[in-house]
Nucleic acid binder design. Structure first.
Length: 755
DNA sequence: TCTGCGTCTTTTTTT
DNA sequence: AAGACGCAGA
């Protein structure tokens, strides 16, 4: 037997991998070989004969990570990896619930609602029960509900005293009823159901506890309270039974999902609950050069209450971080494109370069700049395949066929394509369903009235798909449904419908290649398989982690969030502006500012060789031009690690002598000077005293947009908008410390000073 | 009942 | 800028 894989590890890694049967917390810094440790651990457990594949439960953050893990282990060992349970929390809970649907109180073919399905359902529930969407915004209700669920709280568990949440709570209550009635689960519900299943059924709990002797959790810092409770339950630690060991791997500095309930405190709690004396720290970084790492360390050091960790490398200092302050977003994009072109000509592949941004909206300008220069690029996230309306429509037909209680699906396609069933009729159906306490489809089956004929043909359409669904191969079923439903002919007349029809083809082939993984577990698990239900669940859970056109040489564009876990030779972090990164919505709470800082930390540590940080003083955002000052995070990085490339900063900062020479950043700048006239205008425009003064807003007021001010209470800021007349004139100010504020000029006048 | 138009609002991150 | 929503006219 070969222990080769152990020889590839450094001492800390090896210590983690070869740990005896006990729980552990591995603090794995960015680029410290976390994935290798996880897979090696599994490898170790199996090759040493410590356990069988079926005794391993591994939770990853994304489906992609799960696939990679299975892949790597499978390649190293001649073992049936399908016996292991590897997946995301949601994926694993789904698997468990499908197997135990009866005990969980769900129909076998329960539907999974994604975020937007959930939102529609909330709207529907609010409408049905006469809740004003003015007072309670559906999206706020949504986050309230998810917030509760992520803490493991049912509506009946919440004793709400805060007045403004009382209504949200009762909407939650009714929403729960609707979910149950329609046989649907939202994302959080999958976890909660699964948790309750284990909690309320000692026999089932024991079954899984007996099975999973080794539990491995990746990205532990991003688990929420409910997920942690789930882990505790399944590990057996709460029952005081023979305890399964939990091997938790995470990095508190990379916790960036608190907006969806991630609870950083789980790490501390874990040490206590699982009696882990000391976390194992993996601090040697194999990814980035010294300067990049130093910048990351210095930045993150500003966050109080970390578990503590300092990355080091022996790969040398490397280049400095290049900073570019652009006049506007167009120029920023141009700069990035220039650099990419240059690197490409030096032989660096497009796919080794990534452009990162805080929010998806920022990709537009970058995309068009890349496009104009004929540079291939790949945008991650953004429009997901399964989010497209035509795909959602097609899936809705299939959902309804699989689960006729699925009113959400019913309402989505009852009149798509239009078949003469209008709002009045639909509302009649909804009301009747409400009265009878049955599904809309049930009502439709015996619908009498004006549109009876149209409805009857819709019903028989669904029945036909239903009749075929367990006979036909999945791929055939999908193409049958899109044709028979009339969706194809509907899009044929649509001017840009060709793409949509093409997407149907893609959906069909996804269905064709969908393999129902057979994990028939003796005793408890059901053996009867429902391919369509599994396919639909998979579609929502794997909502298009782009089947990344692998091997394609293209520049990678993505948000910082989706860059987590990835690495690139060259990284551009764009939009380093106060209000954007850190984002305005985070600016008011210290915790969020810290989270944003961690986000920046993640961004920086993606880079292997070269890192660029760029910002734009003016930016078109939400349909209007905003003025921005450089991100405070930029100033949190020691100046000696930075090298400014932009003319603006050259003027304001003394030129660093290291900026001379044939260094690469220099060459871009020099080439910039030789460019055509219009380009030169941008590059060589003198720095305006109040930056961004070439405002389109016609105004000769001293408070015109772009004016820098000092407020007696809020400190420094920039006016970015001026509206109204006379006494009611308003200014919008972006403060560096307090974010956006709108104030009445007549009053603010006395409190501000123009700088 | 359907369609088109105008108005309104919304803008963080995603399993 | 783009999408959701509501209203009016066909």
């Amino acid at each position: 037997m070969s222990d080769d894989f152990l020889n590839l590890l450094n001492p800390e890694q090896r210590k983690a991998v070869t740990l005896p049967e006990e729980s552990a917390l591995i603090l794995a810094g960015a680029g410290s070989g976390k994935t290798r440790v996880l897979t090696s651990r599994i490898n170790f457990l199996l090759t040493e004969g410590i356990c069988h594949p079926s005794e391993i439960l591994a939770v990853t953050f994304t489906n992609k990570a799960a696939r990679e893990m299975l892949d790597r282990v499978g390649r190293q060992l001649p073992i049936k990896v399908s016996r292991m349970w590897v997946g995301t929390f949601h994926g694993l809970c789904n698997r468990m619930l499908r197997a135990q649907y009866k005990a969980a109180g769900l129909p076998q073919s329960f539907t999974i609602l994604d975020q937007s399905d959930q939102l529609s359902m909330i709207k529907r529930v609010m409408k049905a029960h006469d809740f004003s969407t003015e007072i309670n915004k559906p999206s706020e209700v949504q986050s309230y509900i998810n917030g509760c669920k992520e803490e493991g709280l049912r509506a009946t568990d919440v004793h709400e005293k805060r007045p403004r949440f009382i209504d949200k709570l009762s909407i939650y209550e009714r929403y729960e009823d609707t979910l149950a009635k329609e046989g649907a689960c939202d994302f959080a519900e999958l976890l909660l159901r699964s948790y309750e299943l284990l909690k309320n059924h000692p026999d089932i709990r024991k079954h899984y506890q007996d099975q999973f002797r080794f539990i491995l959790i990746d990205e532990f810092q991003d688990t929420n309270k409910l997920q942690y409770k789930w882990i505790k339950l399944i590990s057996g630690i709460e029952d005081g039974r023979a305890i399964n060991t939990v091997f938790a791997v995470g990095d508190d500095d990379q916790s960036i999902y608190s907006f969806r309930g991630a609870n950083l405190d789980n790490m501390r709690q874990f040490l206590h609950d699982f009696k882990v004396a000391d976390p194992i720290r993996l601090e040697q970084n194999y990814r980035s050069t010294g300067n990049i790492l130093k910048a990351a360390n210095e930045l993150i050091a500003r966050n109080p209450s970390r578990l503590g960790k300092n990355l080091w490398t022996n790969s040398g200092e490397g280049e400095k971080i290049r900073v570019f302050e652009a006049e506007n977003d167009l120029e920023e994009a141009r700069f990035v494109v220039e650099a990419i072109t240059q690197y490409r000509s030096e032989g660096i592949k497009y796919k080794d370069m990534a452009v990162l941004y805080r929010s998806n909206a920022q990709s537009r300008v970058l995309e068009s700049a890349l496009n104009n220069n004929g540079i291939p690029y790949l945008v991650y996230g953004g429009f997901r395949f399964y989010d497209r309306q035509e795909i959602k429509n097609a899936l809705a037909y299939l959902r309804l066929a699989e689960n006729t209680s699925d009113d959400a699906a019913f309402l989505r396609v009852i009149n798509v394509p239009t078949r003469g069933i209008g709002q009045t009729t639909v509302e009649k159906i909804i009301d009747e369903a409400e009265v009878k306490g049955c599904s809309c489809f049930e009502v439709a089956r015996s619908f009498q009235g004006r549109a009876a004929k149209a409805i009857a043909s819709f019903v028989s359409l669904i029945e036909e798909i239903r009749a075929k669904k367990d006979q036909m191969p999945l791929g055939d079923l999908v193409s049958y449904a899109v044709a028979k439903s009339g969706l194809i002919s509907m899009y044929e007349t649509d001017p840009n419908g060709q793409d949509r029809i093409e997407n149907f083809r893609e959906l069909t082939s996804a269905a064709e290649s969908f393999v129902v993984i057979e994990h028939v577990d003796e005793e408890t698990e059901e053996t009867e398989l429902k391919p369509l239900a599994l396919f639909l669940a998979n579609a929502t859970l794997e909502s298009g982690e782009s089947q990344s056109k692998l091997g394609e040489d293209a520049v990678q564009l993505m948000t910082v969030h989706s860059a987590k876990g990835l690495e690139f030779e060259i990284v551009f972090i764009t939009g380093l502006e106060e209000g954007l990164f850190p984002h305005n919505n985070s600016i008011f709470s210290p915790e969020s500012i810290e989270e944003e800082r961690r986000l920046m930390y993640v961004a920086i540590t993606r880079a292997k060789k070269r890192l660029y940080m760029t910002m734009a003083h003016r930016r078109l955002l939400n349909g209007r031009e905003d003025f921005h000052i450089p991100s405070s995070y930029l100033s949190e990085i020691p100046a000696e690690l930075l090298k400014y490339l932009s003319p603006q900063s050259r003027r304001s900062t003394e030129v660093d002598s290291s900026n001379e020479g044939d260094d690469f950043g220099e060459s871009i700048w020099n080439r910039g000077r030789r460019m055509e006239n219009w380009t030169r205008q941008i590059f060589e425009r003198p720095k305006p005293t109040t930056f961004g003064m070439r405002s389109r807003v016609k105004s000769n007021s001293p408070y015109a947009p772009g004016t820098k001010i000092l407020h007696e209470k809020f400190g420094e800021g920039v006016i970015y908008n001026l509206t109204g007349e006379g006494e009611s004139q308003l200014i919008d100010v972006m403060f560096s410390k307090y974010g956006k504020k709108q104030m009445l000029l007549s009053i603010a006048k006395n409190k501000i000073k123009i700088v």
